[in-house]
Design a protein around this nucleic acid. Sequence first.
RNA 1: GGAGGUUUCGCCUAGUCCGGUCUAUGGCGCCGCACUGCUAAUGCGGUUUGGGUCUUAAGCCCAUCCGGGGUUCAAAUCCCCGAACCUCCGCCA
Length: 420
Amino acid sequence: MIDLRTLRDDPDRLRASQRARGEDDSIVDALLSLDERRRAALTSFESLRAEQKSIGKSVSRASGDERQALLDRAKDLAAQVKAAEAASEQLGGELDELIMTVPNIVEEGAPHGGEDDYVVLEEVGTPRAFDFTPRDHLELGERLGAIDMERGAKVSGSRFFFLRGVGARLQLGLLNMAMQQAIEAGFTPMITPVLVKPESMQGTGFTIAHDSEIYQLPEDDLYLVGTSEVPLAAYHADEILDQSSLPSRYAGWSSCFRREAGSYGKDTRGIIRVHQFDKVEMFSFCHPEESAEEHRRLLAWEKEMLDKVELPYRVIDTAAGDLGMSAARKFDCEAWIPSQGRYRELTSTSNCTQFQSRRLKVRYRDDEGRPQHVATLNGTLATTRWIVAILENHQQADGSVVVPKALRPFVGLDVLEPLK
RNA sequence: GGAGGUUUCGCCUAGUCCGGUCUAUGGCGCCGCACUGCUAAUGCGGUUUGGGUCUUAAGCCCAUCCGGGGUUCAAAUCCCCGAACCUCCGCCA
Protein backbone atom coordinates (compact mmCIF):
# COMPACT_ATOMS: atom_id res chain seq x y z
CA MET A 1 0.00 0.00 0.00
CA ILE A 2 1.29 3.41 -0.88
CA ASP A 3 1.34 6.20 1.71
CA LEU A 4 -1.58 8.63 1.58
CA ARG A 5 0.48 11.45 3.08
CA THR A 6 3.18 11.06 0.44
CA LEU A 7 0.44 11.08 -2.14
CA ARG A 8 -0.99 14.35 -0.81
CA ASP A 9 2.43 16.00 -0.53
CA ASP A 10 3.84 14.83 -3.82
CA PRO A 11 1.22 13.42 -6.20
CA ASP A 12 3.59 13.78 -9.15
CA ARG A 13 5.78 11.04 -7.74
CA LEU A 14 2.98 8.52 -8.08
CA ARG A 15 2.02 9.88 -11.51
CA ALA A 16 5.58 9.36 -12.74
CA SER A 17 5.71 5.88 -11.23
CA GLN A 18 2.44 4.88 -12.87
CA ARG A 19 3.73 6.07 -16.24
CA ALA A 20 7.00 4.17 -15.79
CA ARG A 21 4.92 1.03 -15.29
CA GLY A 22 2.85 1.88 -18.33
CA GLU A 23 -0.24 2.26 -16.19
CA ASP A 24 -2.98 4.82 -15.83
CA ASP A 25 -1.92 7.92 -13.84
CA SER A 26 -5.43 9.36 -13.61
CA ILE A 27 -5.93 7.19 -10.55
CA VAL A 28 -3.93 9.85 -8.67
CA ASP A 29 -6.67 12.44 -9.10
CA ALA A 30 -9.34 9.93 -8.19
CA LEU A 31 -7.44 9.14 -4.99
CA LEU A 32 -6.88 12.78 -4.09
CA SER A 33 -10.52 13.71 -4.55
CA LEU A 34 -11.78 10.70 -2.64
CA ASP A 35 -9.33 11.39 0.17
CA GLU A 36 -10.49 14.98 0.45
CA ARG A 37 -14.15 14.03 0.55
CA ARG A 38 -13.49 11.34 3.12
CA ARG A 39 -11.66 13.74 5.42
CA ALA A 40 -14.51 16.24 5.20
CA ALA A 41 -17.00 13.52 6.09
CA LEU A 42 -14.81 12.34 8.93
CA THR A 43 -14.50 15.82 10.40
CA SER A 44 -18.24 16.28 10.28
CA PHE A 45 -18.85 12.93 11.96
CA GLU A 46 -16.28 13.65 14.65
CA SER A 47 -17.72 17.00 15.65
CA LEU A 48 -21.24 15.57 15.81
CA ARG A 49 -19.95 12.71 17.89
CA ALA A 50 -18.19 15.11 20.26
CA GLU A 51 -21.45 16.96 20.80
CA GLN A 52 -23.33 13.72 21.34
CA LYS A 53 -20.87 12.62 23.97
CA SER A 54 -21.03 15.84 25.93
CA ILE A 55 -24.83 15.83 25.91
CA GLY A 56 -24.87 12.20 26.89
CA LYS A 57 -22.80 13.09 29.89
CA SER A 58 -25.10 15.89 30.99
CA VAL A 59 -28.09 13.53 30.77
CA SER A 60 -26.80 11.58 33.74
CA ARG A 61 -26.49 14.76 35.81
CA ALA A 62 -29.86 16.31 34.89
CA SER A 63 -33.30 15.43 36.22
CA GLY A 64 -36.96 16.16 35.53
CA ASP A 65 -37.96 18.29 32.54
CA GLU A 66 -34.39 19.28 31.88
CA ARG A 67 -33.41 15.65 31.58
CA GLN A 68 -36.27 14.93 29.19
CA ALA A 69 -35.29 17.84 26.99
CA LEU A 70 -31.69 16.65 26.85
CA LEU A 71 -32.84 13.12 26.07
CA ASP A 72 -34.87 14.34 23.13
CA ARG A 73 -31.96 16.30 21.80
CA ALA A 74 -29.60 13.36 22.32
CA LYS A 75 -31.93 11.03 20.47
CA ASP A 76 -31.96 13.38 17.54
CA LEU A 77 -28.18 13.70 17.59
CA ALA A 78 -27.73 9.95 17.80
CA ALA A 79 -29.47 9.59 14.45
CA GLN A 80 -27.34 12.31 12.90
CA VAL A 81 -24.16 10.74 14.22
CA LYS A 82 -25.16 7.38 12.81
CA ALA A 83 -25.74 8.90 9.38
CA ALA A 84 -22.51 10.90 9.43
CA GLU A 85 -20.56 7.85 10.50
CA ALA A 86 -22.06 5.77 7.73
CA ALA A 87 -21.20 8.44 5.15
CA SER A 88 -17.63 8.64 6.37
CA GLU A 89 -17.28 4.85 6.45
CA GLN A 90 -18.67 4.57 2.95
CA LEU A 91 -16.04 6.97 1.61
CA GLY A 92 -13.33 5.40 3.74
CA GLY A 93 -14.19 2.00 2.31
CA GLU A 94 -14.08 3.29 -1.25
CA LEU A 95 -10.72 4.92 -0.60
CA ASP A 96 -9.28 1.77 0.97
CA GLU A 97 -10.49 -0.31 -1.92
CA LEU A 98 -8.99 2.02 -4.48
CA ILE A 99 -5.66 2.49 -2.76
CA MET A 100 -5.25 -1.27 -2.42
CA THR A 101 -5.20 -1.51 -6.20
CA VAL A 102 -2.30 0.95 -6.58
CA PRO A 103 1.06 -0.76 -7.08
CA ASN A 104 4.20 0.31 -5.21
CA ILE A 105 6.04 3.44 -6.28
CA VAL A 106 8.89 2.44 -8.56
CA GLU A 107 12.43 3.06 -7.34
CA GLU A 108 14.36 5.71 -9.18
CA GLY A 109 16.77 4.08 -11.59
CA ALA A 110 14.58 1.14 -12.53
CA PRO A 111 14.21 0.82 -16.31
CA HIS A 112 10.91 2.07 -17.70
CA GLY A 113 8.70 -0.09 -19.87
CA GLY A 114 7.47 -3.69 -19.99
CA GLU A 115 8.69 -7.26 -19.84
CA ASP A 116 11.24 -6.89 -22.64
CA ASP A 117 12.71 -3.60 -21.45
CA TYR A 118 14.96 -5.09 -18.81
CA VAL A 119 18.58 -3.99 -18.59
CA VAL A 120 21.35 -6.57 -18.37
CA LEU A 121 23.58 -5.55 -15.47
CA GLU A 122 26.15 -8.29 -15.62
CA GLU A 123 27.03 -11.59 -17.28
CA VAL A 124 28.90 -14.10 -15.17
CA GLY A 125 30.69 -17.07 -16.73
CA THR A 126 30.30 -18.22 -20.32
CA PRO A 127 27.92 -20.81 -21.69
CA ARG A 128 29.80 -24.05 -22.11
CA ALA A 129 30.73 -25.25 -25.59
CA PHE A 130 29.59 -28.88 -25.92
CA ASP A 131 31.46 -31.34 -28.09
CA PHE A 132 28.33 -33.47 -28.15
CA THR A 133 24.65 -32.64 -28.46
CA PRO A 134 23.48 -31.74 -24.98
CA ARG A 135 20.36 -33.46 -23.67
CA ASP A 136 17.61 -31.49 -22.06
CA HIS A 137 16.98 -31.76 -18.31
CA LEU A 138 14.03 -34.14 -18.62
CA GLU A 139 15.86 -36.65 -20.75
CA LEU A 140 18.80 -36.48 -18.36
CA GLY A 141 16.50 -36.69 -15.37
CA GLU A 142 14.71 -39.74 -16.71
CA ARG A 143 17.95 -41.53 -17.53
CA LEU A 144 19.16 -40.81 -14.01
CA GLY A 145 15.87 -42.00 -12.52
CA ALA A 146 15.69 -38.54 -10.96
CA ILE A 147 12.52 -37.05 -12.45
CA ASP A 148 9.26 -38.89 -13.08
CA MET A 149 6.76 -36.70 -14.88
CA GLU A 150 4.56 -39.53 -16.11
CA ARG A 151 3.69 -40.77 -12.69
CA GLY A 152 3.35 -37.19 -11.49
CA ALA A 153 0.65 -36.74 -14.12
CA LYS A 154 -0.95 -40.08 -13.24
CA VAL A 155 -1.18 -39.26 -9.56
CA SER A 156 -1.84 -35.51 -9.59
CA GLY A 157 -2.22 -34.28 -13.17
CA SER A 158 -0.12 -32.27 -15.58
CA ARG A 159 2.72 -30.12 -14.22
CA PHE A 160 3.18 -32.45 -11.26
CA PHE A 161 6.16 -34.74 -10.89
CA PHE A 162 8.10 -36.97 -8.57
CA LEU A 163 11.70 -36.37 -7.70
CA ARG A 164 13.20 -39.74 -6.89
CA GLY A 165 16.57 -41.22 -6.15
CA VAL A 166 19.38 -38.86 -7.08
CA GLY A 167 16.78 -36.25 -8.05
CA ALA A 168 15.43 -36.16 -4.52
CA ARG A 169 18.98 -36.18 -3.17
CA LEU A 170 19.98 -33.35 -5.48
CA GLN A 171 17.09 -31.15 -4.36
CA LEU A 172 17.64 -31.87 -0.67
CA GLY A 173 21.36 -31.17 -1.04
CA LEU A 174 20.79 -27.97 -2.95
CA LEU A 175 18.23 -26.58 -0.52
CA ASN A 176 20.29 -27.67 2.46
CA MET A 177 23.28 -25.87 1.02
CA ALA A 178 21.12 -22.75 0.61
CA MET A 179 19.97 -23.03 4.21
CA GLN A 180 23.53 -23.55 5.37
CA GLN A 181 24.71 -20.44 3.53
CA ALA A 182 21.84 -18.40 4.93
CA ILE A 183 22.51 -19.57 8.48
CA GLU A 184 26.20 -18.69 8.14
CA ALA A 185 25.17 -15.22 6.92
CA GLY A 186 23.11 -14.75 10.07
CA PHE A 187 19.64 -15.58 8.77
CA THR A 188 17.17 -17.34 11.03
CA PRO A 189 16.13 -20.56 9.32
CA MET A 190 12.37 -21.04 9.07
CA ILE A 191 10.01 -23.75 7.92
CA THR A 192 6.77 -21.93 7.27
CA PRO A 193 3.09 -22.71 6.92
CA VAL A 194 2.07 -23.04 3.29
CA LEU A 195 -1.62 -22.33 3.90
CA VAL A 196 -2.35 -18.78 4.93
CA LYS A 197 -5.30 -16.56 5.77
CA PRO A 198 -6.60 -14.05 3.21
CA GLU A 199 -5.15 -11.11 5.13
CA SER A 200 -1.66 -12.62 4.99
CA MET A 201 -1.99 -13.16 1.25
CA GLN A 202 -3.39 -9.69 0.61
CA GLY A 203 -1.01 -8.03 3.01
CA THR A 204 1.88 -9.40 1.00
CA GLY A 205 0.41 -7.88 -2.13
CA PHE A 206 -1.56 -10.65 -3.75
CA THR A 207 -5.16 -10.04 -4.74
CA ILE A 208 -7.15 -13.12 -3.90
CA ALA A 209 -10.21 -12.06 -5.85
CA HIS A 210 -8.43 -11.55 -9.16
CA ASP A 211 -5.26 -13.59 -8.98
CA SER A 212 -5.85 -16.81 -10.86
CA GLU A 213 -2.40 -18.06 -9.83
CA ILE A 214 -3.49 -18.81 -6.28
CA TYR A 215 -4.85 -22.16 -5.15
CA GLN A 216 -7.78 -21.47 -2.89
CA LEU A 217 -9.50 -23.54 -0.22
CA PRO A 218 -12.79 -21.66 0.07
CA GLU A 219 -14.20 -24.19 2.53
CA ASP A 220 -11.64 -23.01 5.07
CA ASP A 221 -10.88 -19.55 3.68
CA LEU A 222 -7.23 -20.55 3.36
CA TYR A 223 -4.83 -20.07 0.47
CA LEU A 224 -1.81 -22.06 -0.69
CA VAL A 225 1.26 -19.86 -0.92
CA GLY A 226 3.18 -19.46 -4.16
CA THR A 227 6.28 -18.59 -2.12
CA SER A 228 7.28 -18.50 1.54
CA GLU A 229 7.60 -14.74 1.10
CA VAL A 230 3.93 -14.68 2.12
CA PRO A 231 4.15 -16.34 5.54
CA LEU A 232 7.49 -14.64 6.23
CA ALA A 233 6.14 -11.16 5.40
CA ALA A 234 3.12 -11.78 7.60
CA TYR A 235 5.24 -13.28 10.39
CA HIS A 236 5.68 -9.91 12.11
CA ALA A 237 2.27 -8.49 11.12
CA ASP A 238 0.79 -6.09 13.70
CA GLU A 239 4.10 -5.90 15.54
CA ILE A 240 6.40 -3.05 16.46
CA LEU A 241 9.96 -4.34 16.18
CA ASP A 242 12.89 -3.12 18.20
CA GLN A 243 14.97 -0.91 15.94
CA SER A 244 18.13 -2.65 17.12
CA SER A 245 16.82 -5.95 15.70
CA LEU A 246 16.94 -4.55 12.14
CA PRO A 247 17.78 -5.85 9.67
CA SER A 248 15.91 -8.97 10.73
CA ARG A 249 16.65 -11.74 8.24
CA TYR A 250 14.86 -15.05 7.76
CA ALA A 251 15.46 -17.93 5.38
CA GLY A 252 12.26 -19.83 4.70
CA TRP A 253 12.04 -23.32 3.25
CA SER A 254 8.67 -24.28 1.88
CA SER A 255 6.82 -25.92 -0.92
CA CYS A 256 5.29 -23.38 -3.30
CA PHE A 257 2.06 -23.80 -5.21
CA ARG A 258 1.07 -22.08 -8.43
CA ARG A 259 -1.91 -22.75 -10.66
CA GLU A 260 -0.07 -21.57 -13.78
CA ALA A 261 -3.41 -20.56 -15.25
CA GLY A 262 -3.07 -19.08 -18.70
CA SER A 263 0.34 -20.61 -19.33
CA TYR A 264 -1.05 -23.50 -21.36
CA GLY A 265 1.51 -24.74 -23.82
CA LYS A 266 4.34 -22.81 -22.16
CA ASP A 267 7.20 -24.85 -20.71
CA THR A 268 5.15 -28.03 -20.77
CA ARG A 269 8.21 -30.24 -20.79
CA GLY A 270 9.93 -31.13 -17.56
CA ILE A 271 10.05 -29.23 -14.31
CA ILE A 272 10.64 -25.68 -15.47
CA ARG A 273 7.07 -24.60 -14.85
CA VAL A 274 5.19 -26.76 -12.36
CA HIS A 275 2.32 -26.50 -9.91
CA GLN A 276 4.39 -27.41 -6.89
CA PHE A 277 8.06 -26.94 -6.13
CA ASP A 278 10.35 -26.25 -3.22
CA LYS A 279 12.25 -23.09 -2.48
CA VAL A 280 14.57 -21.47 0.02
CA GLU A 281 13.70 -17.80 0.21
CA MET A 282 15.52 -14.97 1.97
CA PHE A 283 13.36 -12.37 3.64
CA SER A 284 14.53 -9.19 5.34
CA PHE A 285 12.83 -6.59 7.49
CA CYS A 286 15.06 -3.53 7.47
CA HIS A 287 15.26 0.21 8.04
CA PRO A 288 13.62 1.98 5.07
CA GLU A 289 16.69 4.09 4.47
CA GLU A 290 18.82 0.97 4.14
CA SER A 291 16.59 -0.97 1.81
CA ALA A 292 18.55 -0.24 -1.38
CA GLU A 293 21.79 -1.45 0.24
CA GLU A 294 20.00 -4.48 1.67
CA HIS A 295 18.68 -5.24 -1.80
CA ARG A 296 22.22 -5.37 -3.15
CA ARG A 297 23.23 -7.65 -0.30
CA LEU A 298 20.42 -10.10 -1.12
CA LEU A 299 21.54 -10.06 -4.74
CA ALA A 300 25.10 -10.80 -3.65
CA TRP A 301 23.93 -13.83 -1.63
CA GLU A 302 22.01 -15.12 -4.66
CA LYS A 303 25.13 -14.78 -6.79
CA GLU A 304 27.15 -16.60 -4.15
CA MET A 305 24.78 -19.56 -4.47
CA LEU A 306 24.91 -19.49 -8.27
CA ASP A 307 28.70 -19.43 -8.13
CA LYS A 308 28.68 -22.47 -5.86
CA VAL A 309 26.72 -24.50 -8.38
CA GLU A 310 29.03 -23.26 -11.15
CA LEU A 311 26.39 -21.98 -13.56
CA PRO A 312 26.80 -19.29 -16.23
CA TYR A 313 24.21 -16.59 -15.61
CA ARG A 314 23.30 -12.98 -16.11
CA VAL A 315 21.75 -10.40 -13.80
CA ILE A 316 18.90 -8.25 -15.09
CA ASP A 317 17.29 -5.11 -13.77
CA THR A 318 13.59 -5.74 -14.31
CA ALA A 319 11.60 -2.99 -16.03
CA ALA A 320 8.95 -1.09 -14.09
CA GLY A 321 6.05 -2.67 -15.95
CA ASP A 322 7.20 -6.15 -14.94
CA LEU A 323 7.65 -5.47 -11.21
CA GLY A 324 4.30 -6.69 -9.98
CA MET A 325 2.25 -5.13 -7.23
CA SER A 326 4.67 -4.91 -4.32
CA ALA A 327 8.14 -4.38 -5.73
CA ALA A 328 9.78 -0.99 -6.20
CA ARG A 329 12.81 -2.63 -7.82
CA LYS A 330 13.62 -6.17 -8.87
CA PHE A 331 16.77 -7.97 -9.95
CA ASP A 332 16.60 -11.42 -11.52
CA CYS A 333 19.44 -13.86 -12.01
CA GLU A 334 18.97 -15.99 -15.09
CA ALA A 335 21.01 -19.11 -15.77
CA TRP A 336 21.99 -20.37 -19.18
CA ILE A 337 19.91 -23.36 -20.27
CA PRO A 338 21.84 -25.22 -23.02
CA SER A 339 18.85 -27.10 -24.45
CA GLN A 340 16.96 -23.84 -24.92
CA GLY A 341 19.92 -21.68 -25.88
CA ARG A 342 18.73 -18.92 -23.61
CA TYR A 343 18.75 -17.61 -20.08
CA ARG A 344 15.97 -18.58 -17.65
CA GLU A 345 15.13 -17.06 -14.29
CA LEU A 346 16.56 -18.89 -11.28
CA THR A 347 16.38 -16.14 -8.68
CA SER A 348 14.48 -12.95 -8.15
CA THR A 349 15.04 -10.36 -5.46
CA SER A 350 12.59 -7.55 -4.77
CA ASN A 351 12.73 -4.43 -2.66
CA CYS A 352 9.16 -3.87 -1.55
CA THR A 353 10.08 -0.78 0.49
CA GLN A 354 7.20 -0.04 2.89
CA PHE A 355 4.47 -1.37 0.62
CA GLN A 356 3.96 -4.71 2.39
CA SER A 357 4.69 -3.43 5.87
CA ARG A 358 2.03 -0.77 5.54
CA ARG A 359 -0.55 -3.41 4.65
CA LEU A 360 0.65 -5.86 7.28
CA LYS A 361 1.43 -3.22 9.92
CA VAL A 362 5.03 -4.20 10.54
CA ARG A 363 6.75 -1.29 12.25
CA TYR A 364 9.78 -0.26 14.25
CA ARG A 365 10.28 2.65 16.65
CA ASP A 366 12.44 5.48 15.33
CA ASP A 367 14.88 7.52 17.42
CA GLU A 368 12.02 9.76 18.57
CA GLY A 369 10.08 6.70 19.68
CA ARG A 370 7.51 7.01 16.93
CA PRO A 371 6.36 3.88 15.11
CA GLN A 372 7.44 3.77 11.45
CA HIS A 373 6.92 1.12 8.81
CA VAL A 374 9.89 -1.13 8.05
CA ALA A 375 11.04 -1.99 4.55
CA THR A 376 10.70 -5.60 3.39
CA LEU A 377 12.80 -7.42 0.83
CA ASN A 378 12.94 -10.95 -0.49
CA GLY A 379 15.21 -13.02 -2.69
CA THR A 380 15.60 -16.59 -3.91
CA LEU A 381 18.45 -18.80 -2.69
CA ALA A 382 17.47 -22.03 -4.43
CA THR A 383 14.50 -23.72 -6.04
CA THR A 384 13.56 -26.94 -7.73
CA ARG A 385 14.08 -25.21 -11.07
CA TRP A 386 17.80 -24.98 -10.34
CA ILE A 387 17.94 -28.73 -10.96
CA VAL A 388 17.19 -28.01 -14.63
CA ALA A 389 20.22 -25.78 -14.97
CA ILE A 390 22.49 -28.02 -12.93
CA LEU A 391 21.64 -31.18 -14.89
CA GLU A 392 21.98 -29.52 -18.27
CA ASN A 393 25.13 -27.51 -17.65
CA HIS A 394 27.05 -30.26 -15.89
CA GLN A 395 26.05 -33.20 -18.10
CA GLN A 396 28.60 -35.43 -19.81
CA ALA A 397 28.36 -37.26 -23.11
CA ASP A 398 27.36 -40.52 -21.43
CA GLY A 399 24.37 -38.89 -19.72
CA SER A 400 26.02 -38.69 -16.33
CA VAL A 401 26.06 -35.40 -14.45
CA VAL A 402 28.97 -33.98 -12.47
CA VAL A 403 27.86 -32.55 -9.14
CA PRO A 404 29.38 -29.09 -8.56
CA LYS A 405 32.14 -29.29 -5.98
CA ALA A 406 30.48 -27.17 -3.32
CA LEU A 407 27.32 -29.24 -3.57
CA ARG A 408 28.99 -32.65 -3.20
CA PRO A 409 29.03 -32.80 0.60
CA PHE A 410 25.32 -31.99 0.61
CA VAL A 411 24.34 -34.49 -2.08
CA GLY A 412 26.80 -37.17 -1.01
CA LEU A 413 27.77 -37.96 -4.61
CA ASP A 414 30.41 -36.62 -7.01
CA VAL A 415 28.69 -37.81 -10.16
CA LEU A 416 25.11 -38.78 -10.89
CA GLU A 417 25.10 -41.91 -13.02
CA PRO A 418 22.36 -43.02 -15.42
CA LEU A 419 20.39 -46.12 -14.43
CA LYS A 420 21.44 -49.26 -16.28
C1' G B 1 -17.14 -32.51 16.40
C1' G B 2 -19.07 -31.38 21.73
C1' A B 3 -18.82 -28.83 26.79
C1' G B 4 -16.66 -25.15 29.88
C1' G B 5 -13.15 -21.17 30.87
C1' U B 6 -10.03 -17.08 29.36
C1' U B 7 -8.81 -12.51 26.18
C1' U B 8 -8.23 -4.93 29.23
C1' C B 9 -3.27 0.72 26.55
C1' G B 10 4.98 -3.44 26.28
C1' C B 11 4.26 -7.46 30.51
C1' C B 12 1.10 -8.57 34.81
C1' U B 13 -3.46 -6.71 36.71
C1' A B 14 -8.37 -3.84 38.82
C1' G B 15 -12.98 -2.86 36.62
C1' U B 16 -17.64 -6.63 33.74
C1' C B 17 -22.44 -9.36 38.35
C1' C B 18 -25.76 -4.00 38.93
C1' G B 19 -24.48 0.66 31.70
C1' G B 20 -23.13 7.20 32.83
C1' U B 21 -18.63 9.30 38.14
C1' C B 22 -13.80 4.60 33.05
C1' U B 23 -10.90 10.84 30.35
C1' A B 24 -9.70 2.44 32.16
C1' U B 25 -6.83 1.02 38.46
C1' G B 26 -2.32 -0.57 40.47
C1' G B 27 2.52 -2.98 39.92
C1' C B 28 6.75 -4.01 36.70
C1' G B 29 9.52 -2.16 32.70
C1' C B 30 10.94 2.16 29.99
C1' C B 31 11.88 7.75 29.41
C1' G B 32 12.70 12.61 31.73
C1' C B 33 13.62 15.60 36.03
C1' A B 34 15.03 16.21 41.23
C1' C B 35 18.02 14.48 45.22
C1' U B 36 22.80 12.12 46.06
C1' G B 37 30.95 11.50 46.56
C1' C B 38 29.73 7.08 42.59
C1' U B 39 26.24 3.21 42.06
C1' A B 40 21.91 1.94 44.35
C1' A B 41 17.64 3.69 46.73
C1' U B 42 13.91 7.48 46.93
C1' G B 43 10.56 11.38 45.15
C1' C B 44 7.92 13.83 41.09
C1' G B 45 6.23 13.71 36.07
C1' G B 46 5.53 10.99 31.52
C1' U B 47 4.65 6.31 28.87
C1' U B 48 -1.57 2.16 23.93
C1' U B 49 -2.21 2.73 18.93
C1' G B 50 -4.41 5.00 14.68
C1' G B 51 -6.65 9.34 12.71
C1' G B 52 -8.61 14.56 12.14
C1' U B 53 -7.67 19.83 12.83
C1' C B 54 -3.03 22.84 12.30
C1' U B 55 2.56 26.25 8.07
C1' U B 56 5.24 23.84 12.46
C1' A B 57 4.62 22.88 17.47
C1' A B 58 1.42 23.08 21.45
C1' G B 59 -3.48 22.42 22.10
C1' C B 60 -8.18 20.49 20.98
C1' C B 61 -11.18 16.55 18.95
C1' C B 62 -12.51 11.34 17.25
C1' A B 63 -11.72 6.16 17.37
C1' U B 64 -9.41 2.11 20.08
C1' C B 65 -10.74 -2.68 26.40
C1' C B 66 -9.67 -9.91 20.95
C1' G B 67 -12.79 -8.94 15.97
C1' G B 68 -17.75 -7.96 13.88
C1' G B 69 -22.90 -6.79 14.60
C1' G B 70 -27.00 -5.28 17.90
C1' U B 71 -29.80 -2.86 22.19
C1' U B 72 -29.51 2.24 24.36
C1' C B 73 -29.54 9.24 24.76
C1' A B 74 -25.08 6.51 26.59
C1' A B 75 -21.44 -0.01 26.27
C1' A B 76 -14.84 -2.50 28.74
C1' U B 77 -19.74 -3.53 31.24
C1' C B 78 -25.99 -6.08 28.38
C1' C B 79 -27.38 -9.41 23.81
C1' C B 80 -25.88 -12.16 19.17
C1' C B 81 -22.04 -14.05 15.76
C1' G B 82 -16.90 -15.12 15.13
C1' A B 83 -11.39 -15.70 16.37
C1' A B 84 -7.30 -17.14 19.39
C1' C B 85 -5.63 -19.64 23.72
C1' C B 86 -6.48 -23.18 27.94
C1' U B 87 -9.07 -27.61 30.19
C1' C B 88 -12.07 -31.92 29.49
C1' C B 89 -14.78 -35.50 26.19
C1' G B 90 -15.16 -37.73 21.30
C1' C B 91 -12.78 -38.92 16.63
C1' C B 92 -8.33 -39.52 13.73
C1' A B 93 -2.91 -39.50 11.89
